[in-house]
Structure formats: structure tokens, C-alpha cells
Design a protein around this nucleic acid. Structure first.
Lengths: 216, 216
DNA sequence: TCGGACAAGGGGAAATACCCCCTTTTTTGT
DNA sequence: ACAAAAAAGGGGGTATTTCCCCTTGTCCGA
């Protein structure tokens, strides 16, 4: 039956203007229909759990959303519904997040300034062939597998310390806040300086902001 | 003739998916037509200069764009075409930028997660009555006029110093970089701490990033 | 000629950065 | 199952940097 019925698409995006408009754009292509729209990952997952048998050919998933964001949603899908095909949509071309979305199973990653023609081709491609990657994304994948293998993994305590370090508290104050001796805090500091290749607390703050450990 | 012809709208947004989709949404309302779309302020202004007589009822202006952003475009419009009505569209509800867009003549400010119904009402309102402000924006305006009158103005040297302070250089190194005595730098530091109500260099870094003096 | 900005400096307390050291628990490899 | 190896927490001491207050001169515009 699939050959003569339209492909079923779901949109998950908190920008209502965008998601409703996008539905119209997709409709105008003629080959697809938007069966549902959700404004964050949470309500989308709720829907999937209540309707496990609903037929879905493609999911258009926004990366930046409140409540449950694109990456977390992607992780849930990888775990629970790896059968579903997802194209991630985003305004930013941040290396990290693109890699993460793809390693968690996204079949495509499009920026929102993509032209409607390419968008249409990507939808077609993913539904028919299973994937679609732009040059931007392919290039990034090649770069990443070649170079960035030494992954810096931060432990929970370190993250907490970094967040505190991004305030005007002194280390002593941070220590008492975290119920640890100032010496332990000094140990965290030193090992982080070493690990992150920085020399001052300023460097730590810049690192934290760049890697979205803290928000400004 | 205006009463029985559709209102003419222009969209300026670099997200092609959004802008093309939005055109469809606006068309679906029935009362409006999108006569042009541009992907940044620069090409839009070029168009205005070449077609100074084109009839435009409303401009939907994205705030975050490459080449020439929403605010700069708004300033140009205030200077050169104050007759044109603009609704600013944005994903972020940053106080500063909202205030700036409005003080530069925007007749409305909508977040992109606005519902299509409110969007439609806003368009209607601005074309007919001249303005439309959501509660978010009104509340912000009231807050701002009441509280934030003391403007913090930074001098060029101070800006340069702040940029250097947002690196791992010591104050001594900054001094030699700026060809000043460490003690002069110390003076800059102290007066800034005072002015910006901060207590540590960390606070200065956070301030600089928050106010986009430096970028991460 | 007064005030105010800018530049420079002295002295000192506090915080930060950088050493080398120790014990206890947890994890891991085989 | 057991030893080896990390990881987590704490300690002493020192050098450097940051932070703070207070003074001196100069130049410039009102």
C-alpha cells in the first residue's frame, strides 16, 4: 500500500511559526503528509508510547528545544525506537552536537538556512535510501574520526566545581559550598588545568562557556 | 484601491526553510501576499534603494542574520525609511536586543515559538493599528524605563583591556601588550570593578561575554 | 584655575597557582 | 579472588598574581 500513499512525516519543533509553516511547505511538495506536530521531545515521546503502532516514515527533529531537547530525544529514540528515521534540524553548525546527533542515529542533519529544494531532496533521500548528508556534515565526520579521538571526559564533581569556578566565589568558598577541603578543590583545579591545557582560572571559565558547561 | 487588494508583506530571514514556509503560512491566512523575500538586511536594503516606490504594508524582520543583522537593518530603516512598518522576529528574548529593536522603530516583536494565531493577529494589528506588543515585551518595556537608566559607557581603552582580561594573560602581560605600566592597568581594573559592580576578574570575564564585548 | 581624565607608582593582604607528599577507597585486570 | 592501579580526599609550603587603598604628576577643557 505504501507505494501509492503519501509518506507520513512528524515535526518536532518548539517554534510554532516554523513548524506550522514547514507543514505547509512539505504539503506543497505533494508527496508527503505531516501527520503530527509536537513542540518538544517530551510530548513527542509521550505520543510514541501511547501510539506505538502508528506508521511514521520520517521525523523532523529540532535540536534546540525546551523541556526535552533534540539530543536527549535522539538518545531515547536510539534506545527505544531505532526503527524510526530522523532528520535533525538546527540553526547552529556546532561540530559537537552534529556528531552527537549522528552517532545517536540521526539519518541527516540540516541547517535551517537550507534551501527548500535541498530540504525536499533530503526528505526524499532519507525515506528512500536511508540517509542524507550535506558536504558540511560529511566533512565534519571525516575531520572528527581522524583527529579528535582523545575525548575529554569530565566527572560529575568536576562539572560542579567548574560551575562554581565560573562565579566570583573564591576557591575557599567553593570548597565549603561543596563540603570539601580547600586542598581537594586545589586538586580538582590542578588536574583540570592539566587536562584542559589551561593555565589560569580565566581559561577554565572560557572553556566552560565554550563547551556549554555554564551558560551566560 | 487598498481596501480590496491584499496587504503586501516582505520577509527578511536567512533561514530559507523558515522564510519560504512562512510565506505559505501567510498565504494561507488569505488576506496577505508576500511580495518579496530576502536572506539578509543587505540585499533587502539594496532592493529598497532600487525600488523606492514599491508599496509595502509590512516587513517581517529576523533579528539574527549574517551579513547585516536585524538591528543594523532596523537602524537603517529608522534613518531612511521610517514610513515602513516592521515586526521583528527572533528566537531569543534577550532584553537588550528587544529594547533596541523597539527604540529603533519596530512596531512589534514576536518570538518564533509564537502560535500562528497570535502571529496572524499581530500582522493584522500592526497593519491596521500600527503596533502590537505581547505581554512579554510590554512588561520588559515597563521594567526598563523604570530601572535601567544609568547607562554604563565604556571607553575604548577599557574595551581593549577587557578583551585582554578575557585571556590567560596576567595583568603584567596585558600592560606590556598595551604599552602601559602595570599600575595603570591596575587602575583600569579597579575602576571597572567599581563601575560594573564586580569583585573579581572572573566577574569581568562573565560581564564581557554576557554583553558581547568578547565572543566565545 | 578648577576639576577631571589619564598615567604611574608604593605597600600590603588575600587569593591563586604550583610544588611534593600522604591515606583510603574503588576499580580493574587476569 | 587478589593484587595492581586508579581515583578521591586531604596536608605543607612557596611563588606569583590579584585585589585594594592611597599618592603624585600632567594635560586639557570649561
Amino acid at each position: 500500500m505504501k507505494t501509492n500513499s503519501k509518506s507520513k512525516i512528524i515535526i518536532v519543533d518548539d517554534h510554532l511559526l516554523f513548524s506550522q509553516s514547514l507543514e505547509l511547505l512539505i504539503k506543497s511538495f505533494g508527496d508527503y503528509e505531516v501527520i503530527e506536530r509536537f513542540e518538544n521531545g517530551k510530548v513527542f515521546i509521550d505520543y510514541l508510547e501511547e501510539n506505538p503502532l502508528s506508521e511514521i516514515d520520517l521525523i523532523l527533529l529540532d535540536v534546540n528545544m525546551p523541556v526535552l531537547d533534540g539530543l536527549s530525544t535522539m538518545k531515547w529514540l536510539k534506545e527505544n525506537r531505532p526503527d524510526l528515521k530522523v532528520i535533525a534540524l538546527s540553526v547552529n553548525d556546532d561540530d559537537e552536537i552534529i556528531i552527537k546527533m549522528i552517532t545517536n542515529g540521526a539519518k541527516g542533519y540540516l541547517l535551517k538556512d537550507t534551501s527548500p529544494e535541498i530540504f525536499r531532496e533530503a526528505i526524499h533521500c532519507v525515506i528512500e535510501k536511508g540517509f542524507y548528508f550535506t558536504e558540511l556534515v560529511s566533512g565534519m565526520l571525516i575531520n572528527k574520526v581522524n583527529s579528535d579521538n582523545r575525548k575529554i571526559s569530565l566527572k560529575e564533581k568536576e562539572i560542579v566545581f567548574i560551575k562554581h569556578a565560573c562565579t566570583e566565589m573564591t576557591y575557599k568558598e567553593i570548597a565549603s559550598e561543596m563540603c570539601l577541603s580547600p586542598k581537594t578543590i586545589d586538586g580538582y583545579r590542578e588536574s583540570l588545568f592539566d587536562k584542559l591545557e589551561i593555565k589560569t582560572r580565566i581559561g577554565l571559565v572560557l572553556y566552560a562557556i565554550k563547551h556549554k558547561i555554564v551558560f551566560v
